[in-house]
Each structure stands twice: as C-alpha cells, then as structure tokens.
Simulated scan of single mutants.
Amino acid sequence: MTRYTMGKKMDQITPELQSFIKEQKIFFVATAMAEGKVNLSPKGMDTFRVLSPKRVMWLNLTGSGNETATHLKFSNRITVMFCAFEGKPLILRLYGTARVYHNYNKEWSQYASLFPEYAGSRQIIDIEIDLVQSSCGMAVPFMDYQGEREALRVWADKKGNAKINDYWKEKNTESLDGYPSGIFE
C-alpha cells in the first residue's frame, strides 16, 4: 500500500498523488469572487485529468447552477479537494488559477477529446497549480463506492442538445449573486 506524507506542502503533484487522484470517485471544487457567496461543489464521473505535475483539467457537466464558471470569469482562484474514503487517510488539495473553455472557444476542440462524450458537457476547466497540500484526513469516514449515479447522463441524453441549451438559458446564465456566467458569449 502506498504511503502518503501527511501535512505536506508541495509545488506539484507527485506520481504517488497522481495515482491517488486517479483512484478517486469524487472531488470537490471551491471558488469565490471578491464578494458574494463562496461556491463548493462535488464532482464525479470520469471528468478529471492530470495533464502534468502542475496542470489538471476537468469537464464540467450541466448542473442546476453555474457558479464555478461565473466565479472564474471574475476571479481565477480555485481549490480542488480529494478525500480518501477507503484505505489510508488522506485529504489532498490542489490550489491554483483556472481558465474556463466553453464549446465556442478554440481550446474546447483541443481538449474535449481527453474526456468521454457526455450530453450536457458545459465547460472545461483548465487549472495551473501553484500549491499542492496533503493533510491527514483521519476524521474522514470510510465509505463504500457502490457505482456511478446514471441520473445526470440519462437526463441529458433524454433532453438532447436543443433542450439542454434552453435549460442553460433558464438556469446557467447567471450566478446566485446575479453575475453573468459567460455560457453563451
């Protein structure tokens, strides 16, 4: 079993931590603007990639809001967190700055092939890491992975692109604080 160093600060993802990331079924993303609400979102499915020790990406799928993309439009700060729910305890945080690529950006076509095709794929978030921090996670409970939820995939497949665009217009154009998300710019 791999041993992780707890409570350590690093400037990049080590090979051991990259393996840990690849094994995780869920991660959490936090963003905030200078004022307004802080957003913290759980993410799952096969949507996260480590491109290099200092660069990661994830495919952001349709949700009931669009806080992450909106916040990053105004402040590019981001934190991604992984927790070990099985095996040795570990909390891993990736701190950095991010760019958002929508399907109308040239970068979308460059990076979309890194991920499975999901109906309702909304943005690709590209993160440059400036700090990697591990901490103990000894109070994080053990939890058993039972499988992926299929509800989002089924919902998006059933809706189709035209109705997903309508949903984005209704639910994803502004943040909770009323700022534009940039989804249709």
Rank of each mutant, 00 (worst) to 15 (best):
T2F: 07
R3Q: 12
M6F: 02
M6Y: 05
G7V: 01
K9W: 00
D11A: 14
D11N: 14
Q12Y: 13
I13N: 04
I13C: 05
T14H: 09
T14W: 07
P15M: 05
E16W: 01
Q18A: 14
K25E: 13
F27I: 11
F28Q: 10
V29L: 10
T31H: 06
A32L: 03
A32Q: 07
A34Y: 14
E35G: 03
E35L: 08
K37G: 11
K37P: 04
V38E: 02
N39F: 01
N39D: 09
K43R: 15
M45A: 13
F48M: 08
R49D: 00
R49G: 05
V50Y: 02
L51S: 04
S52K: 05
K54F: 01
R55L: 04
N60A: 07
N60W: 04
L61P: 03
T62I: 12
T62D: 13
N66Y: 10
E67R: 03
A69W: 06
A69N: 12
T70L: 06
T70A: 14
L72K: 11
S75L: 08
S75I: 00
N76L: 02
I78A: 01
I78E: 06
I78S: 08
A84W: 00
A84I: 05
Y95T: 11
G96Y: 08
T97L: 00
T97D: 01
A98C: 03
A98E: 08
A98L: 04
R99V: 00
V100N: 04
Y101G: 01
Y104E: 09
N105W: 03
W108Y: 06
S109H: 15
Q110M: 12
A112L: 07
S113P: 08
L114C: 14
F115M: 09
F115C: 08
F115L: 06
E117H: 15
A119M: 12
G120T: 12
Q123H: 15
D126S: 05
L131P: 00
L131K: 15
Q133H: 07
Q133V: 00
S134F: 02
S135C: 09
C136P: 01
G137A: 10
M138L: 12
M138R: 13
M143A: 14
Y145M: 07
Q146L: 13
G147W: 11
E148N: 09
R149H: 11
R153Q: 14
V154D: 10
W155Q: 13
A156G: 04
A156I: 02
K158G: 15
K159Q: 10
K159E: 10
K159C: 08
N161A: 14
A162H: 10
K163P: 03
K163T: 13
N165P: 00
D166V: 06
W168F: 00
K171Q: 04
N172K: 03
N172G: 06
S175D: 12
L176D: 05
D177N: 11
Y179L: 13
P180I: 07
G182Y: 08
I183V: 15
I183D: 05
E185F: 02
E185Y: 04
